[in-house]
């Protein structure tokens, strides 16, 4: 069998932020690959560059140099409109603070995305996948943090994305709630086969991944493969 087709490829990615006279090098030449359907956990301390990396391959930010590819799209060459198109068609995002629209119910928050997606699943189906079929008509303010995060996951997967990018998805949640969110993420990863990248501070989560990538000082400091993966119920923090 051929080696799995890489869905992401990055070579020599750098990112320098300039604020006034101060330069901050957030990324210092990152090389990275991810295969289709992989579940990758990215670990690293604050300021190690992991979020910057995720933002660049998620099409939210531009690299200073180097190249990043999503399948045959060279992300580092896309305009703002091209990046918007890329995010719209291929990427599902989950963030630490959910970023739901407060004036829309759970179902409507999902529908917001399915309305503009090319091959969406049904919004109810997406909510069912995260176990929220009974809470579809609730507004975010009426949902717990974990429920809100699961709405965000449903919203992210409802477009049937090729990649699911999660930045600290359990960062604002307690352990039990975090486990339910992780379960939802893993279930989705298996069900739709989306390559999933999860950024976390939380080392306990690394056992769920196919692969663990460690960031430090703006670069990748180590990669581990898990031969056996735990289920979310087996981890805690």
């Amino acid at each position: 069998m051929d080696a799995p087709v890489p869905i992401f490829r990055a070579h020599g990615l750098t990112k320098t932020y300039r604020s006034g006279t101060v330069e901050v090098q957030a990324l210092r030449g990152v090389d990275f690959q991810a295969a289709a359907g992989e579940f990758i956990v990215i670990l690293g301390p604050s300021g190690s560059g992991k979020s910057t990396f995720l933002n660049i391959i998620g099409g939210l930010d531009q690299a200073t140099s180097g190249e990043a590819w999503f399948m045959d799209h060279e992300l580092t060459r896309l305009s703002d409109a091209g990046l918007t198109r890329y995010r719209r068609d291929h990427v599902g995002f989950v963030f630490q603070f959910y970023n739901l629209v407060p004036s829309l119910t759970a179902l409507e928050n999902v529908r917001l995305v399915t309305e503009i997606a090319r091959r969406p699943m049904s919004p109810r189906e997406a909510l069912a996948m995260v176990g929220l079929e009974d809470r579809v008509d609730h507004f975010p303010a009426e949902l717990s943090g974990g429920e809100q995060q699961r709405v965000a996951i449903a919203r992210a997967i409802s477009k049937n994305p090729e990649v699911l990018l999660c930045d600290e998805p359990t960062g604002a949640l307690d352990s039990a709630t975090g486990v339910r969110v992780l379960e939802a993420l893993m279930r989705v990863n298996e069900a739709i086969g989306a390559t999933t990248l999860v950024i976390t501070h939380n080392a306990a989560i690394k056992d769920l991944a196919h692969r663990v990538v460690r960031f430090a000082n703006g670069g990748i400091s180590g990669v581990e493969e898990n031969t056996t993966r735990k289920s979310p119920a087996e981890v805690s923090w």
Binding site: A81, T84, F93, N99, L100, P102
Partner: peptide, 16 residues
Amino acid sequence: GRELASLRVLGFTRAE
């Protein structure tokens, strides 16, 4: 602003 920026992340264009 926060919601609108979130929509941009989700792939909404500037015009939308």
